[in-house]
C-alpha cells in the first residue's frame, strides 16, 4: 500500500530516507573493529503475542542486552531477531530463556550467535502471524526499572500483519533502549491507529523500513516520543 497523499505530506520519502540512513549509520558505527559477526542476533519464541506482554518483555530483553556487552553488536546487526512459534513452557528445561514475558507467553534468547540456537530454529517454525493487527487500541505498559518518565509509542496498523508488528515494534523499542532513550522511562503509552500522527520531526525515534507493497519506497511503521 502506497502512502496516502495526506501521509506523504507529513512523512516525505526524503524524511524517511534520512531517518533510515541515520539508523543504518548508527548501527554500522557500533560494530566492533573487524566488523563483528554477521550471524549475531536474538531469538524470541512466541506462544501468544498480546501487545502489552510483547512490548513489556521486548523492552526488558533489550535492557538486559544494553547492560551487557552484546548490545552494540546486536545493534550493529540491526537488532536482528528471529521470531519462532512455540510454547515457552515446553522449552524451559532444555532451552532456558534469558528473559520470559510476565505471562510466560514469550521467551527471549540472546543476543548472541544465532548458530547457538540452531536446535531451537530446527525444532520450531518461524512465527507466521499473518492476521492483521486490529483493535489493539491504547495501552499503558509499565516497564519497571525505577524511571519517572513516560514515552509514547504510536504504531501504524494499516495493512500490518501480526508478524510485521512484532518485527517493527521490536526494532523500534530495542534500538530506543540501546540508544538510551528509555533509560529513565517507567511506562509506555502505546497507541495503535491506522496512521502515525504528525509531525514526524518531534518523534525521538521512528521505525522506517522498506514498504513491502511499494518497492523503492520507505514507510514509517511506528514512532516513539519521550515526554519532556
Amino acid at each position: 500500500m502506497r502512502s496516502s497523499p495526506a501521509e506523504a505530506a507529513v512523512l516525505t520519502q526524503s524524511d524517511l530516507r534520512a531517518r533510515f540512513d541515520e539508523r543504518i549509520g548508527r548501527a554500522v558505527r557500533l560494530l566492533p573493529p573487524g566488523g563483528g559477526d554477521p550471524g549475531f542476533g536474538a531469538v524470541a519464541v512466541v506462544r501468544d503475542a498480546a501487545p502489552e506482554t510483547f512490548i513489556r518483555s521486548a523492552v526488558a530483553f533489550a535492557r538486559r542486552a544494553a547492560a551487557g556487552t552484546a548490545g552494540p553488536l546486536w545493534y550493529g546487526n540491526f537488532t536482528r531477531t528471529v521470531f519462532l512459534a512455540g510454547d515457552p513452557r515446553n522449552l524451559a528445561v532444555r532451552h532456558p530463556p534469558d528473559v520470559v514475558a510476565p505471562d510466560g507467553a514469550i521467551a527471549w534468547y540472546g543476543p548472541g550467535r544465532l548458530a547457538g540456537h540452531a536446535t531451537l530454529r530446527r525444532m520450531l517454525r518461524p512465527f507466521a502471524g499473518t492476521t492483521p493487527v486490529t483493535g489493539a487500541g491504547a495501552l499503558r505498559v509499565p516497564l519497571g526499572g525505577g524511571g519517572t518518565r513516560t514515552a509514547y509509542v504510536h504504531v501504524a496498523t494499516a495493512g500490518l500483519t501480526l508478524r510485521d508488528y512484532l518485527v517493527h515494534v521490536n526494532h523500534l523499542l530495542a534500538e530506543a533502549v540501546l540508544d538510551g532513550l528509555l533509560a529513565d522511562v517507567a511506562a509506555l503509552v502505546v497507541r495503535h491507529a491506522p496512521r502515525l500522527p504528525a509531525p514526524p520531526g518531534r518523534h525521538d525515534a521512528v521505525r522506517v523500513a522498506p514498504d513491502p507493497s511499494a518497492p523503492g519506497l520507505l514507510r514509517a511503521h511506528a514512532c516513539l516520543t519521550v515526554a519532556s
Partner: peptide, 12 residues
C-alpha cells in the same frame, strides 16, 4: 556492499 548485504540478510 558489506553494509548492504548485512542489511538484506539480517533485517530483510
Amino acid at each position: 556492499y558489506a553494509v548492504t548485504e548485512r542489511f538484506f540478510t539480517g533485517e530483510l
